[in-house]
Amino acid sequence: MKKIIALLLCFTVIFVFAGCDKENESKDIEKTENKQEEIIHIEEESLTESAEDDLNDSENKSSIKIGVQTNTSGHIYASGDFGEGAVVSYENGAVAVEALKKGKVDCVIIDNEPAKSYVAANSGLKILETEYTTEDYAICFNKGDAELKNAVNGALKALIADGSVKKIVDKYINNSGEALNGILVKAVDTDKPDLVMATNAEFPPYEYTDGDKYFGIDIEIAKLIADKLGYDLIIENVEFVSVIPGVQAGQYDIGMAGMTVNEERQKQVDFSDSYTTGVQVVIVSEDSKIQSVEDLDPYYIW
């Protein structure tokens, strides 16, 4: 008998959990203003509560939680500036933005262009006006492959000079209206030699998939370079963290994934000249207590 009562209790608990879930969902669906306000109110409450908790727990840690994508330059900068304890890293930018929407982090530090796409796709988010930092994007090579590096640098120089690179950047970032040239995911084999490029096609507008094609600034620039040098471009879509090790191991000829040049990376791989500049920005929810980059941390020195 006791067992049955215990079991009934157990299932009541489970049903209560299930109930919570439904309530949340219905709240999300019913977009009446009252409900929205209520949610915001609850989120604010939990935010301030957790912030207070953090302050009580540890004096040194920042009270702000910053979402980033694992091992991107945003992750490296943020944990350098605010400490590991303040940074929550996610597998990709979309997950980090989802966490921001749910109030799990207070802001997301990410590259400008994907940030724009995320903000456009999610209402209630905005990008802070001041940028967090700027950086150069470049193609990476195996240290032993100086020949390829020089060839690519040459091609890149010509493409920058004749305005092709700018044209590509314009059509993805400024919507210049020109048609996008995708590359089929399933590569067509020709008799030209292969140029294997590692990328992480989850980083619009630099690289992403749409239907059966890869699109993006990096993809189109790589295609132009490959055409110029007489290669067949083969794209390998891998995790961002696998790009550098793969290039180092000689699995891929080049790595091109919106990759920032920095000292640590230069120890591992060689970089081409920069083909575009990336900007790291901060995404926050519209009603956030963070309204400028300076709000991120009172102790942060610019």
Binding site: K65, E98, G103, K104
Partner: peptide, 11 residues
């Protein structure tokens, strides 16, 4: 993480 405990900020 994202649906059942969407308000929890500790993973």
């Amino acid at each position: 993480y994202f649906i059942i405990f969407s308000l929890a900020d500790n993973g």
